[in-house]
């Protein structure tokens, strides 16, 4: 089995800027905030966050904030809860949450809760359990969960539970590993994991491992490195990760590396991107791969960052 090409991946992330006329880069413009989170968290897990100029990042992030308190995907873009979480997470990485007007940010998020407990992504009202997770994660990091009706938020998530133990985007929506991460994460953060049938969900999640070792997100779909995060973190949160073959999954992720130019792809021999590089490295971190910082499965931040937030050390 190969090894994690740590130095190559660091170089890859730092060099994304040098690529010209890249369609992906253009398409990424509106979600640069997410890109920053993926790239910078990966660097931190690899122990190389110090290669980044903190002040530049922080001042750019703050330029993406709106009067409403929410953050846009880039300067001049409308705020959305998706980018607001990424902004808060990146500030947390650098221990700079103190630059935030916490009241303002948390009011923005709390204002997105609907009567039934669900959350909209922005003022336009798209509802999805992803946004429940984001709201809860963000408010928890900022110590303001009291601003929302947690009980209703939890009962909405529970209403999205399916017969297979998994969760979908809205009530009745098919179970999908990404949505499951969001629901399990939100329930974990709010201390509500007792609503989950852990053995049933655990079995569904471990059925996601295919013979090649990788994980898929739904039955009969192809494996993809991103599920190394969504499935694994969920299994860890419900304490069932020992049910899958870790060795085979490690090998699958390592086989998706571009060992020449750095970066990780969705499946072996595909093109790499920052998104899959993050999920691959984060997955390896969950698998306790040597040399990587540990990542918290619920907050999707390095454990030392989470400890700082909640224990001040």
């Amino acid at each position: 089995m190969g090894e994690l090409a740590t130095e190559k991946h660091v170089q890859y992330i730092l060099s994304v800027e040098k690529r010209k006329d890249d369609f992906i880069s253009v398409a990424m413009e509106y979600l640069r905030m997410n890109g920053a989170y993926w790239g910078l968290t990966t660097l931190d897990l690899l122990g190389k966050l110090d290669a980044i100029d903190v002040d530049e990042v922080v001042s750019w992030i703050m330029k993406c904030q709106h009067e409403s308190g929410g953050f846009g995907g880039n300067i001049g873009h409308d705020p959305h809860i998706l980018y607001t979480l990424s902004a808060v997470q990146v500030l947390a990485l650098f221990d700079k949450l103190n630059v935030l007007d916490v009241e303002k940010v948390t009011n923005y998020i709390a204002g997105l809760q609907n009567e039934d407990g669900s959350f909209s992504g922005d003022e336009w009202g798209e509802v999805d359990t992803r946004f429940s997770y984001i709201a809860i994660c963000c408010l928890s990091i900022l110590h303001h969960l009291n601003k929302i009706n947690v009980e209703k938020a939890v009962s909405y998530i529970v209403s999205c539970k399916n017969l297979d133990g998994g969760f979908g985007c809205t009530p009745g929506g098919e179970s999908h590993a990404g949505q499951i991460f969001c629901c399990v994460g939100a329930l974990a953060i709010t201390g509500s994991l007792h609503h989950i049938d852990k053995d049933l969900l655990g079995w569904w999640l471990c059925e996601r491992q295919v013979k090649a070792g990788g994980l898929n997100g739904r039955p009969e779909k192809l494996p993809d490195v991103c599920y190394s995060w969504w499935v694994l973190s969920s299994l860890i949160m419900i304490d069932r990760v020992h049910w899958i073959s870790k060795e085979k999954l490690v090998k699958f992720i390592l086989d998706c590396q571009d060992t020449e130019n750095g970066g990780i792809s969705d499946r072996p021999d595909d093109a790499v991107d920052v998104y899959h590089t993050y999920f691959g490295v984060a997955g390896l971190s969950l698998l306790e791969y040597p040399g990587l910082k540990a990542i918290d499965p619920a907050y999707a931040l390095p454990v030392d960052v989470v400890n700082k937030i909640f224990f001040g050390r």
Partner: peptide, 26 residues
């Protein structure tokens, strides 16, 4: 024009057509 800040974290090489359209949209 877009204000990317002095030295963006995830800088992007835009195509000319994209830049112009976005500038008018803005």
């Amino acid at each position: 024009p877009q204000d990317d800040g002095p030295s963006p974290v995830v800088p992007i090489a835009y195509k000319e057509e994209f830049v112009e359209t976005m500038d008018y949209f803005r």
